[in-house]
Design a protein around this nucleic acid. Structure first.
Lengths: 241, 241
DNA sequence: ACGGAAGTCTGTACGCCGTACATAATACGG
DNA sequence: CCGTATTATGTACGGCGTACAGACTTCCGT
């Protein structure tokens, strides 16, 4: 992960440090990061290799290491950058449920535009300006819900976890389009032997209702309602206190 | 992903086909799969390479391809196998909330014992005996909730998605132990400039309350309560119909 | 004006990865 | 006992991240 301090500096001051001496840089951290994002958007995260990004920039692979300490850091920078670019709308006058739904929708759009972002570890996030702006904005949506700071943070984590999880599932479903058509026949041979009555019935019903084995849009809509209902129960009790 | 049919056969009949002619196999699909699981348990998913699994079995890498068409299929077989090995307890006499909490706990234990399982795509699952047994068992926990088949499937997907998401976060937090101690000082320099008042306050409160920046156990407990509350709202309305 | 320092760029190389392909070794059916 | 089916091996290709050494360019201090 390279030196932590270096990463922090790159996040917050991507063009910092007026270098006095030496050859003028032909690239910049931002250009490298943007190229990585464009590549990931167009061809997926697995297309983002140091060699490929370098090629895209017309430079030899090792040159990137002048701007970025390693690939893991590059990915962090990419993630913070797309966080920073999200459009954020505060909705102080709307009811809490609409505010939280809007937060979810903002994140859903992020993952729609940058599906690779859902595959990056969100656990140790890049604590850059993008994440901070995002976190600050999203916390304000919980204002007036009666939750204390700890509960607010937990609730936001819960909400964001759901959206990311949905996005991952959606991305997988996209990749696997047509899988069921191919495997269905072979499976039928194995399955219809009464061994799994409930599974067969429910699976068939769900598949038929959704027009596919997995319907990410339906899963998202269903899940979001449950998430908001669940948070609503908590909010109701807290407000009653 | 190899031929679909081949994969199905491997899932359901791992030791099939009494071969008459030819050299006796020195290995078996099960041994390969079990070695992969042991390796992933001990050293993580990134340690599971064809070369490494082969070495563990005292064989040259290419030999594995006699038993398994490719690495992706091996991972699917590993996943279905740990699904099959889960201990499943039906609880027909307990209230629905306890039943669903037990399902969540079973999955949580799975990911505790095999953290790598949370990193495998659950979107196009390995439709083997393990997943089927798991699915059948977990569906029965929803009996008597008043949900129709489609809603039951969606509710289960929602519940499992939460547990997997939590497990992933927990695994990341485990890897990043000590990260905050290293980065905290550098971050302080950047953060306390009133730019992010809410974020700074809530982040500090949450971190202090949990003894760490991220507390997976707390996040799981909090989230599970919200998940069950959310499903409870749905169940209440369905039963009222 | 110029030599050295600091910074940027490049080429080569190492050890990994998944796996295609050709070949050798083994064991049974006829 | 030969042919054939099956398993095992060795070699090789194209990818990956990046360590390292050296070349090139620019500015500062003298």
């Amino acid at each position: 992960m390279a030196e932590a301090r270096r990463t922090i500096d790159l996040l917050w001051f991507p063009e910092a440090g007026e270098k006095r001496r030496g050859r003028r840089p032909g690239l910049s951290v931002s250009r490298v990061v943007e190229t990585g994002i464009a590549l990931a958007d167009a061809e997926g995260l697995e297309a983002v290799s140091m060699r490929r990004v370098a090629q895209e920039l017309g430079v030899v692979p090792m040159t990137l290491y002048t701007y970025v300490p390693d690939k893991a850091t590059l990915l962090e920078l990419m993630l913070d950058r797309v966080y920073l670019a999200m459009t954020r709308v505060d909705r102080p006058d709307e009811p809490w449920r609409d505010r939280l739904a809007a937060i979810a929708e903002e994140n859903r759009r992020l993952y729609a535009e940058h599906p690779w972002a859902a595959d990056l570890p969100a656990g140790r996030p890049p604590l850059g300006p993008g994440l901070m702006a995002k976190y600050e904005h999203e916390l304000t949506a919980f204002a007036g819900c009666g939750l204390d700071d700890v509960a607010t943070d937990a609730a936001l984590t819960f909400l964001l976890g759901f959206v990311q999880s949905s996005a991952r599932t959606a991305a997988e479903a996209r990749d696997d389009a047509g899988w069921w058509e191919v495997n269905g026949p072979a499976l039928a041979v194995v399955l219809d032997e009464q061994a799994y009555p409930t599974a067969a019935r429910v699976g068939a019903a769900a598949g038929e209702a959704q027009g596919a084995a997995i319907n990410p849009d339906h899963a998202y809509a269903f899940g979001l309602d449950r998430v908001l209902d669940g948070l609503g129960v908590l909010i109701a009790t807290q407000r009653a206190d």
